[in-house]
Write a protein that binds this DNA or RNA. Structure first.
Length: 461
RNA sequence: GGGCUCGUAGUGUAGUGGUUAUCACGCCUCCCUGUCACGGAGGAGACCGCCGGUUCAAGUCCGGUCGAGCCCGCCA
């Protein structure tokens, strides 16, 4: 590829290079023009000297965000001309040729001032926002975190497997996005709120160790730390107990911080473990912020929340699960679950990972025996017909030699948000949605044609 | 479903119910050979989100609406 990265030029004095990027600023001194050129890697000062040359005339026409290809020689700057604030501040590009690859209208906001610009404008012009240091750094760091996770889980013998996005609705939990099934009029797929059932079926399938960087969809109201569409680092393992899952994940989180955020300090290692009851009593929430100094930008206080009650009473007095129906009881409570005795006292083999007051993940050991899952559903007074229609496929699968298994899922954006010190998960997503889950860049959702609606087999009320 | 905050040139903002709506950045023209937040001179750009009401008079007060954000509910 015929281009040199700007960041590399700092050590390339004397070399003739080809730089491609965007014009960040222009400082026109009449017979001397400086152009700061930006690519993904950095910024370099390009110099055009005087007179009436054709090259100089071209440089006069350059404006903010023009896309250019520059060739020339990297030269070191005079001592008084060094800019210590820029990585390439000791060198500059003596331009020999300039090609304008594309012109640009005046940007909707100054790229260098994106941080002060209204978020609505930033989202509408996300492709401009992304050119800012802040957003580029967030996107790059997110990539590096995901890559580290992939590499690490690969060495731990995990397989990355994609599970369907067109799937079956789940009976409880978050409201789901629905997708009309054209070939089965009147029937619908839903988009998964999590790959939960599929990853358990992978365990039945003998995969043993699975992970996925999985997109999940929940049609609920949003928050600064919740989007309708988000990404989970989802994993599941066979032949493990709670301790194994927690250890592996703790090690992985520590490795991410130590490798990619060496300036940050983890408050306590191993991560403290707090029972659900203690967390509620002491902090009033199950995602406590246990930082000693909440003003310390480099302090990361991880903790595990454990010993969740398996069931809680609903408003109507019946039992419901606190997490999901697939969670198993702690080993010492498994007989009690089958006997359906003292239901409110049963502790689940369930764990949440919390960072600086945010739940960044949660998981459990699952019921791998059909009778245990059935017991959970019966405790909740689920009718035999509903058990069969909603969970029959899982119960059936479990009867064909399902291994003991368990797993966890992280909210990737929340983790990246906290590591990057951003106030919202929108800031670590390339194309986030607004508070009412609209995409103001693409203008979605949008009205469909009558033909498309008819083909989908649906009617608009 | 509910509560709260905000909406003024391209961007960020100032603006006691009273004349021609403030400032900075950006933009345009001209000048400038070492700037890097370049500098200098000049210029354009707003009908104050939208609709209605109160008032002699509304950017300012009231109601509604649209849009953005925060929070509660919700998020197995």
């Amino acid at each position: 590829m015929n281009r040199d990265w700007i960041i590399d030029t700092a050590s390339q004095v004397g070399k003739t290079v080809t730089i491609k990027g965007w014009v960040q600023t222009r400082r026109d001194h009449g017979k001397l023009i400086f152009i700061d050129v930006r690519d993904r890697s950095g910024i370099i000062q390009a110099v055009f000297w005087g007179g009436n040359s054709e090259l100089f005339e071209q440089a006069t026409a350059l404006r903010s965000e023009f896309v250019v290809c520059l060739t020339g020689k990297i030269q070191s700057r005079g001592e008084k001309q060094i800019n210590p604030d820029v990585p390439t501040g000791t060198v500059e590009l003596a331009v020999e040729t300039l090609e304008i690859l594309n012109e640009a209208e005046t940007p909707a906001f100054e790229i260098e001032k994106a941080a002060e610009t209204n978020e609505e404008t930033r989202m509408k012009y996300r492709y401009l926002d992304m050119r800012s240091d802040r957003m580029r750094n967030n996107i790059e760091k997110r990539h590096q975190i995901v890559k580290l996770i992939r590499d690490e889980l690969d060495t731990q013998k995990f397989w990355e497997i994609e599970t369907p996005y067109l799937t079956k609705g789940t009976p409880e939990g978050a409201r789901e996005f629905i997708v009309p099934a054209r070939l089965q009029p009147g029937k619908f797929f839903v988009l998964p709120q999590a790959p939960q059932q599929f990853k358990q079926l992978l365990m039945v399938g003998g995969v043993e160790r699975y992970f996925q960087i999985a997109r999940c969809f929940r049609d609920e109201d949003t928050r600064g730390d919740r989007q309708a569409e988000f990404t989970q680092v989802d994993m599941e393992m066979s032949f493990v107990e709670q301790e194994d899952v927690m250890q592996l994940n703790e090690t992985l989180l520590i490795k991410i911080v130590e490798t990619l955020y060496p300036e940050k300090r983890i408050q306590t290692v191993p991560f403290p473990r707090i029972s659900y009851a203690d967390a509620m009593e002491k902090y009033g929430k199950d995602s406590p912020d246990i930082r000693e100094d909440k003003d310390d930008k480099n302090l990361l206080a991880f903790c595990w929340i454990v010993d969740f009650p398996m069931f809680e009473k609903t408003d109507t007095g019946s039992w419901t699960f606190t997490h999901n129906p697939f969670s198993a009881a702690m080993p010492e409570y498994r007989q009690q679950l089958r006997d359906k005795k003292d239901i409110g006292d049963i502790i689940a083999a369930q764990y949440d990972i919390v960072l600086n007051g945010y739940e960044i993940g949660g998981g459990s050991i699952r019921n791998h025996r059909a009778e245990d899952l059935t017991a959970v559903l019966e405790i909740m007074d689920t009718s035999p017909e509903k058990i069969e229609s909603d969970f029959g496929h899982m119960l059936k699968a479990f009867k064909f030699g399902a291994p003991p298994h368990g797993g966890i899922a992280w909210g990737l954006e929340r983790l990246v948000m906290l590591l990057q010190g951003e106030p919202s998960i929108r800031d670590v997503m390339a194309f986030p949605k607004t508070g009412d889950s609209r995409d103001i860049l693409m203008d979605a959702p949008s009205v469909l044609s009558d033909k498309a609606i008819k083909e989908a087999g649906i009617k608009i009320l």
